[in-house]
Design a protein around this nucleic acid. Structure first.
Length: 786
DNA sequence: AAAATGAGAATTAGA
DNA sequence: TTCTCATTTT
């Protein structure tokens, strides 16, 4: 690997050398200018473990990047000796750019700045043979995983209908998030899938991955952990290499990532661990994805002699916004505790307004945006943050009629789109003839008459003879196994693949891509398609080919793409209102933020409450906190009294979070003009009465919510707890994952199906034998103990 | 093998 | 309501 040399420093004195240090001492550290004392401490405390608790808008990224610049400038380490991990490619890219600006040159010499997964891959490729892989192993995405899982389930002679592959994929994913290999999965959980076969299937899946020379996303971390554990020499090599480690968004790390970090940071005796984690426990909103807030809460215990630095000076929002957000989040119990402050003006109070229904909510917000626009506000500085994506639609509809430009952020990612995945599958199958999953994906796309029957024959032959399917195909077209028609079609397809593979030697990869898409009939398929989205898909394909430009060849492109492929950066140049989910908004900021849908059941989301009890509520509250703190000047909370959920209209009531906002920082906007269609809702009092009365919520909204829950079919359940996770006798995670509160055999009640007995449990999915309705699979939050 | 019909379910999302 | 997935129909 070329990272041993450091291109950007090629003509500079050796890192850590006397000359470098002298230069650093002599040069006024321009990059330190303008940091406040806490930020500066976070940058300059280089020795030993440091936890930087960086509240929203306190300059987290600045600290992180300046710290790296500082390490480099003081000659404490060379770029290739710094490990800096982020969660998203976007964050990694941003860091790279900002460091470049700080040190005034490109940072190509920082090979170890990247996502957990990207760095994991890099490490694994170097030592692939130690974890039973070849260094050119392929990385499977979720879709490939499920396809593979289907095969494993079929091979185990299990009914795929009763035990969907999707579900097994989720189970395995969550095991991997918790750092569990097949052997380590708790017996109870391993039993819960497919009548006790869960553990075996996981093991079988892992075995299949090895024969395919493939790894899924979870493996990128898990196999690294295994590598380090089984090969102390390899681990020691990285200990020597990484003089400094930095972790972004530490509150989002899961158990596997924590273990990975801990292994890497266990420096040889006598040496200090220069680990710096930056995060905000109040912004931990990914518990459902395996993130462990516990990691950040436990930092001091995990890393002896650590320094904790709080960044509480906020540079983003006005006083009223911070006041409202701070008061809200103070309700949470499991937090380290921070209070943000600002020198900024108090500004406008946070407004709370109610609408009759979701349609009126959208109309009112649309009008308000038009008013802002008239006053000269840029639409780019306005965002609508929703809890669930179905809420977006109403706004889109409204904005279309108003002719108000908007963009939806999030949604299906570029590389997840079917046409992109199909195209990539063609490329993969061309470049790697052993890539069965890719081949299977496109063998009949476009439809060419190679259906299930043909694929099954190929499959059987391939499995029996332990050869890739493409090879099986080449053999079979020479035999009488296949019917004449598919036989000829398949023969043509194989010829085409052979031709493309040959062409890949001579053509540029972009031409090759176009050739494949053309000759395979794939482009044609979409051109003939008359549906509305066909044009967009063709456009995406063009974009895909365009995006290949910066790569040297097809292999390099494919290598990169499995890990890094963001939605094509849509022209942020146009002035548009942004519509996005609260989760998607983390890390972003806008002058004006609209927060619609603050209603019990939607926000906090009922499911979060049902499945995770108090922890779920606190996570929802953090989400509200994230939403409010996105606003620079104006935060506008809305709720509707009626909303259509799953097709039918339901009366809703204001979120308890509305009640938890402090009166001093809030203005209640009285229903006025066209929006007061009856004033059927009664505005809640604000929470001046009992600011901190522990767990007794007694404001009206909350009371009504509780009544509703009591009278309804959904019983509030105690938070499900599963065994704390310990590794090598040490507590690693207290609250890991979720488990059903039900047991097999329990009698339950479902609002639609009536009474029944639980036959099987898989996570939160129950199979229930209902007295009247027969056997059904339901999500456990839809049933109550009878 | 492909289109049509019907049933069942229903946050949030990163690599 | 709207989507996905599976089964049935052509």
């Amino acid at each position: 690997m070329s990272d041993e040399r450091s291109p950007s420093l090629a003509h500079q004195p050796a890192a850590g050398g006397i000359a470098a240090r002298a230069m650093a001492a002599a040069r006024p550290a321009a990059y330190l200018q303008g940091l406040n004392p806490e930020q500066r401490a976070a940058v300059e405390t280089l020795d030993g473990p440091v936890l930087v608790l960086a509240g929203a808008g306190t300059g987290k990224t600045r600290v992180l990047t300046t710290r790296i610049a500082h390490i480099l400038a003081t000659g404490r380490a060379a770029p290739y000796q710094i490990l800096a991990v982020t969660f998203t490619n976007k964050a990694a890219r941003e860091m790279r750019e900002r460091i470049g600006v700080l040190i005034g040159q490109s940072v190509e010499g920082m090979p170890w700045l990247g996502t957990f997964h990207a760095i994991g891959v890099k490490i694994l490729r170097r030592h692939a043979e130690l974890v039973d892989l070849k260094s050119n192993f392929t990385i499977l995405d979720t879709d490939d995983q499920v396809r593979l899982m289907k095969q494993v389930i079929a091979a185990a002679d299990i009914d795929e209908k009763r035990w969907p592959a999707r579900q097994l994929a989720n189970a395995i994913d969550s095991w991997k998030n918790r750092g569990l290999t097949p052997a380590q999965v708790p017996a109870g959980e391993a039993m819960s899938f497919a009548n006790g076969k869960g553990g075996e299937l996981y093991a079988a899946y892992q075995a299949r991955l090895k024969t395919l020379n493939a790894a899924d996303f979870g493996d990128l971390l898990l196999e690294c952990i295994r590598l380090f554990r089984e090969n102390p020499g390899v681990l020691a090599e990285y200990h020597r290499r990484f003089r400094f480690m930095l972790v972004d968004e530490y509150q989002d790390t899961n158990v596997a990532q924590y273990l990975w970090l801990r292994l890497l940071s266990q420096a040889p005796a006598g040496e200090k661990v220069n680990l710096c984690c930056v995060g905000d426990d109040d912004q931990s909103i990914y518990g459902w994805r395996g993130a462990e807030v516990d990691n950040i809460l436990r930092f001091e215990k995990d890393f002896q002699g650590s320094t904790i630095i709080r960044l509480e000076r906020n540079y983003r929002s006005t006083g009223h916004i911070l006041g409202a957000a701070g008061h809200l989040i103070a309700r949470n119990e499991g937090r380290l505790g921070k209070t943000l402050f600002t020198d900024d003006v108090e500004g406008e109070r946070v407004t709370v307004a109610g609408a009759w229904d979701s349609g009126e909510e959208a109309r009112a917000i649309g009008d308000e945006i038009e008013n802002l626009q008239r006053k000269g506000h840029a639409l780019n500085d306005i965002a609508i943050l929703v809890r669930a994506s179905f809420q977006m639609r109403e706004f889109e509809d409204r904005f279309v009629t108003l002719g108000l430009p908007y963009r939806v952020i999030g949604g299906p990612r570029f590389y997840e789109r079917a046409e992109i995945r199909d195209a990539l599958a063609y490329f993969r199958a061309t470049m790697q003839p052993a890539d069965d999953l890719a081949f299977e994906r496109i063998v009949n796309v476009p439809k060419r008459g190679l259906g299930d029957a043909t694929v099954q024959i190929l499959h059987d032959y391939a499995r029996h003879n332990s050869v890739p399917m493409m090879q099986a195909a080449r053999v079979l077209v020479e035999t009488e196994e296949l019917k004449p028609k598919p036989r000829q079609t398949l023969r043509d397809l194989m010829t085409a693949f052979g031709r493309w593979a040959a062409q890949s030697e001579v053509l540029g990869h972009q031409e090759l891509a176009e050739l494949i898409l053309e000759e395979s009939g794939y482009t044609d398929m979409w051109q003939k398609d008359r549906t509305a989205e066909a044009a967009g898909r063709l456009e995406n394909l063009k974009e895909l080919v365009r995006s290949m430009e910066s790569f040297e060849n097809m292999a390099g492109f494919l290598e990169h793409i499995s890990l890094v492929m963001d939605a094509s950066e849509e022209g942020a140049s146009e002035d548009k209102v942004s519509i996005l989910t609260l989760h998607g908004a983390k890390g972003l900021e806008y002058d004006t933020v609209f927060l619609p849908g603050w209603e019990e059941g939607l926000f906090p989301h009922q499911r979060s409450l049902d499945e995770n009890g108090r922890a779920g509520l606190e996570e929802e509250r953090r989400l509200a906190y994230v939403g409010l703190t996105r606003a620079r000047r104006r935060a506008k909370v809305w709720f509707a009294s009626n909303r259509r959920i799953h097709g039918l209209w339901q009366a809703t009531m204001p979120s308890r979070f509305v009640d938890e906002l402090p009166a001093a920082h809030v203005d209640v906007v009285e229903p006025s003009g066209s929006y007061s269609s009856g004033g059927a809702f009664a505005m809640s009092r604000f929470d001046k009465a009992q600011p901190f009365s522990g767990s007794t919520y007694s404001t009206p909204g909350w009371q009504r919510a509780r009544e509703n829950m009591a009278s309804g079919f959904k019983a509030t359940q105690p938070p499900p707890r599963r065994e704390p996770l310990t590794i090598e006798g040490e507590l690693v995670a207290r609250s890991t994952g979720t488990a059903s509160v039900h047991k097999v055999g329990d009698r339950v009640f479902h609002v639609k199906f009536g009474y029944g007995d639980i036959a099987e449990i898989d996570g939160n999915k129950l199979t229930v034998d209902f007295d009247k309705a027969g056997r059904k699979r339901v999500v456990d939050s839809f049933v109550a103990a009878a």
